[in-house]
Design a protein around this nucleic acid. Sequence first.
DNA 1: CATGAATGAGAATTCATTCAT
DNA 2: AATGAATGAATTCTCATTCAT
Lengths: 204, 204, 204, 204
Amino acid sequence: MAKSKEDVVQEFRVQSIQEAAIRVIARKGMASATMQEIAEEAGVAKGTIYLYFRDRDELVEKTFETAIGELHKRIDAALESDGPFAQRLRAVITAKLAFFNENREFFRLYHTLRMPEGSATQQRRQKRTCQPQYRARVDRLAAHLKSAMDAGEVRPLDPKRLALCLIETSTAIVLERLSEDAPPPESDDVELIVSTLLSGIAAK
Amino acid sequence: MAKSKEDVVQEFRVQSIQEAAIRVIARKGMASATMQEIAEEAGVAKGTIYLYFRDRDELVEKTFETAIGELHKRIDAALESDGPFAQRLRAVITAKLAFFNENREFFRLYHTLRMPEGSATQQRRQKRTCQPQYRARVDRLAAHLKSAMDAGEVRPLDPKRLALCLIETSTAIVLERLSEDAPPPESDDVELIVSTLLSGIAAK
Amino acid sequence: MAKSKEDVVQEFRVQSIQEAAIRVIARKGMASATMQEIAEEAGVAKGTIYLYFRDRDELVEKTFETAIGELHKRIDAALESDGPFAQRLRAVITAKLAFFNENREFFRLYHTLRMPEGSATQQRRQKRTCQPQYRARVDRLAAHLKSAMDAGEVRPLDPKRLALCLIETSTAIVLERLSEDAPPPESDDVELIVSTLLSGIAAK
Amino acid sequence: MAKSKEDVVQEFRVQSIQEAAIRVIARKGMASATMQEIAEEAGVAKGTIYLYFRDRDELVEKTFETAIGELHKRIDAALESDGPFAQRLRAVITAKLAFFNENREFFRLYHTLRMPEGSATQQRRQKRTCQPQYRARVDRLAAHLKSAMDAGEVRPLDPKRLALCLIETSTAIVLERLSEDAPPPESDDVELIVSTLLSGIAAK
DNA sequence: CATGAATGAGAATTCATTCAT
DNA sequence: AATGAATGAATTCTCATTCAT
């Protein structure tokens, strides 16, 4: 039951186009990324994109989902590993930094889609995909925080807001690292985040 | 040296247009906010906008700067007040939450501009304004953190990264509050952020 | 309460564009008449058309209605004049031939719209405008035929089908005249149609 | 001299495609009937159509000719039968109504092509085929009318214009019947047309 | 100064046609 | 012969910007 040659080609095209989309969006920004340029970047004709994606919105949406899926897979693996909370937290942050280091160009797409933009249609789509995606991530992380609180590993605080802080703190560091010519070793930043979060910044 | 009548009218126009821009961008998103709609919202003709702003980009840029300036003024006041670091930190967070509560519509503009978008020209402009603005904020906060470290109020960590974490954590909470129908009292969220930052989340 | 200058200009533009549309459709056919070419023909920019008409469909629809309205006005006047039925019939046919002689270019638009074409949207529009227009004409003529029957001027036959025959017979002659380099005098064709309809073609 | 298997297949393909074209055009209208949909309807691949027809225009043209040929065969048979003119006329009208009743879907193609549409190329093609086809029909019918006049069966009138009236009258009735849910018996409409044409509509 | 009609560059999308398999 | 993925010309529509009034 191996994949037929057609399936392989199909998959390859879809992937090429999505990668091109990410690169172009990274370069030009969501609003200025044209189908023409994405097509050129992918090395196909404009019309070809429409063989694989209904329209621009679907291309962006599917591209986002594909890329974010990979990130989520990695984070979930880290989150659900065994060990004390501190260790799992460290693994999650490490995974996130590593992912965006490997997929630097994806970050702009990721960031742009955090805020609903554009036409009513697009906003509906946004609500359907990116927002829920994000909420789901927050909720999942919040659940783990709750467990850690119940286990006495984390002091009792609003888990959902804590999750937000955690996510955005690491995102901020990712964004910073991406803009740096020579960022410090990943592990330094991981340590900073984990340590700050766990122990706070106040001198003892 | 009173303002001439012309200056007053000029100032009024500029302000009307900028406020209209913020409202329309909040409503439609950066990409779908048209000059036409901004003009209507401001109660002037499309052409009039061009008497006060070179082009759309400059309108957005100046609007951003005006609005963000107010925020920065408030934050700086909090930051430079007397008292222990913890108290100043609390004041800063409080100021930020209050500002965005009063200027909810500005938030989308603020968020959108965090990531450079659009044409090469726009990107250059972005780099000239928003990015440096942001860097400057980070640096200023970092300087205060450094002082607090030197004063033994904060344990020694990279001040710049700490500043980033602080800024983004509070931004995340703002974003969350804006999307909530009935957000908790501001003071609760301020307390959460300050407490987490200072003492960390680990159970003792 | 004279028309303001703006109204005059507006009316002039609308009329120019509609006339251009009719000419281009006459030249290229409905399907090949592009907005670009209509704009050029009207001596305005593409975008200008969209200031006066929502989209291509509305342009065609409104253009059709404007032009057909004039024809209908003339036919109704003829139909509702006094005198014996034969005389009114003659007047109607005369009006129709004269109208299409004066508005030769409109004929292709008229003919094309007799049959629903194109997208689902367009078909709905068609049903809303052209079809009912046509049915209404048929019904009105049928009513007059019925009166003539009741008055003993016309022998009893299905008035609606008779109306159809009458309309299409004259349309056929119009179409023929338009394709002729030197058509016979209008009165000859009017006479032929009226005489055939009233007395038939059979030798006595 | 039996047909080779290849010829049979070829013929079958051509026929399938033409029938599909007629159905799709009937459904979507000439302008919205795509090669893709015709191919699907015919159960072949898009490319296959191009093995049998040079391009879309030729497909439409040949399809029209094939279908109209059948109608013409039937009409000619009726026209050239023996018997008095009135009887032959009745037979012609009957044949036409029956044909379009059996080939309802063909009617839209027939009607659309009555007026030249599309590109210059297509218009030339149109002039080469549909127009001459139509003229030929008119001329042939006119010749028969002339004979009938010479034989004293029909009173002297312009035979060509009479032919036009006859053709369009019956076409109008066909169009009407196709749009009716429950049209009257064919014979009723035939009788109406024949009677009107022969004897006129005036009360004696 | 203010206006808003006019402009036209530019973007998304469609679809007839080609051609490698 | 048949296929259908790929192509890109062509089309519609939008909107920032200009400029005559």
